[in-house]
């Protein structure tokens, strides 16, 4: 029975990893998306090169760089913190892309109307475009959240005691590979299914008839 307790501990760690890193990713990703559509070229360049860079790097390479490389420069974080930071920095790039795609779904007429009554960039973005982009962004954002739950398993590679790591350890202790594997799968389903329902609910709530 204590194995179930250990799994619950693993689930808690996975949830913490996911929520914390997703919060970072949303803030940073939104900021990057705003930079990408801003009238200031250096900010646009920065945001697009950030997104490109993250797309070109494997997540595990970034994580290893953080955990082994940064201490050499005098930055020492716990394994948990590094995993949260890496996951957050990494998925910020995809949140940026999703938000940008959402911004592009807002009809041009809306933006032209806002421009023609003399709104500034920040007013157009904050009061016209983003509020309307939200509803088309929710769906893809939900996908990203579910991907984030799965991506948080990367922490197991460096020894953060999440579901995957716990399953590995339980398997070492009991040698019951099949039940352990099924248990871990179940644990992930326990997280991804409600997350999917939640975002679908949000999407329906925000649906606007056009």
């Amino acid at each position: 029975m204590s194995y179930i307790g250990r799994f619950l501990g693993g689930i808690a760690v996975s949830v913490e990893l996911t929520l914390l890193s997703f919060a970072i990713a949303i803030v940073l990703g939104l900021l990057l998306a705003i930079m990408r559509v801003s009238p200031w070229p250096p900010f646009r360049w920065f945001a697009s090169s950030y997104v490109e860079l993250m797309q070109m790097m494997p997540l595990l390479a970034l994580l290893l760089l953080f955990t082994f490389g940064l201490p050499k420069l005098g930055f020492i974080y716990s394994l948990f913190t590094s995993t949260v930071l890496v996951l957050g920095l990494y998925s910020a790039a995809w949140i940026c892309e999703v938000v940008r795609a959402g911004i592009n779904t807002v009809s041009i007429g809306q933006i032209e109307a806002a421009r023609s009554i003399g709104m500034r960039f920040d007013q157009i973005l904050g009061e016209v475009v983003l509020p309307q982009a939200v509803q088309s962004v929710i769906g893809p954002l939900g996908n990203l959240f579910i991907i984030q739950i799965k991506a948080s398993a990367i922490g197991a590679a460096i020894g953060v005691a999440d579901i995957t790591y716990t399953a590995q350890k339980i398997n070492f202790d009991t040698a019951l590979a099949v039940p352990t594997f099924l248990g871990a799968m179940g644990a992930y389903f326990l997280l991804t299914l409600p997350a999917g329902w939640f975002f679908r609910f949000l999407e329906q709530k925000m649906a606007v008839l056009r």
Partner: peptide
């Protein structure tokens, strides 16, 4: 729905 890492480990 299952992380690739878990799949590979098992």
């Amino acid at each position: 729905a299952v992380p690739l890492l878990l799949l590979i480990l098992f």
